[in-house]
Design a protein around this nucleic acid. Sequence first.
DNA 1: CATAACCTTAAAGTGAACTTTAAGGTCAAG
DNA 2: CTTGACCTTAAAGTTCACTTTAAGGTTATG
Lengths: 133, 133
Amino acid sequence: MKTFNIGELSDKSGVASHAIRFYERENLMPEPARTQSNYRRYPEDAIARLQFIIHAKQWGFTLDEIRELLMLQDANGDRAEARQIAKKQLEKIRHQIQSLSRIEAVLSETLKECSGEGPMDGCPIVEAIAQQG
Amino acid sequence: MKTFNIGELSDKSGVASHAIRFYERENLMPEPARTQSNYRRYPEDAIARLQFIIHAKQWGFTLDEIRELLMLQDANGDRAEARQIAKKQLEKIRHQIQSLSRIEAVLSETLKECSGEGPMDGCPIVEAIAQQG
DNA sequence: CATAACCTTAAAGTGAACTTTAAGGTCAAG
DNA sequence: CTTGACCTTAAAGTTCACTTTAAGGTTATG
């Protein structure tokens, strides 16, 4: 079985060494074995765990939520709990999309009204921001 | 002409006194007049300026961007520049909506596949996160 | 005239997710 | 055997947009 130093794991996973140590302190990564000289030695599945963290982050999960998901996996916990976490995340994302879509609509409408010529005084963009939000 | 203490301005604008002083340090609000006892005295248009800041924040502008917009107004600058700032913001928002929509699609699909019953081992949610992002 | 409710400043704290720095110890190459 | 690239730790710094704290001075009310 292959094992890695933290630098090799960093290269293979794309996560900086310092970030890996940070994840260890934050209980996202388990404490790895050590060499006699106290170097961290990681098994191959550490790569997958880091990639799980990266992907979950891309999905907008916070480290707290990711820790929860990892703990459920480690304890082989209840699938219903994982579902709850993901469901909450989906709602959060849908809410964000709605807010951003409203802003997109008003902002693009406002931009159509502003030719970009002339002085600031009377600029439709500024007036739109000033008026309502 | 009416003038206000910082607390009155805070009540009228909905922005905390400390935040108003913070905006002054950050050059979003101009230094107001002072009473003999060194209290800040604000004119009525300070309310509108704070509301401009609030609304711009709701549109997702950062304080740096808001400062730029306010400086353009104060200097009665070029409308084209304000348009550029707003355009960049619109692109940023559209990009965010796209990313979130992709996540929404995959996450809701994954949730449909997961009944919520059984152990974590083999949970479609965990597998979906582990696999790709 | 005391007390509460304002106001002043500078500086430190918050949270999220790291990154950077300081001050070393270890290991492989030439 | 030395140079450089790795590794160790703890602690402080980063960004954003404030909030909180500390340590006072001022003004309105009873």
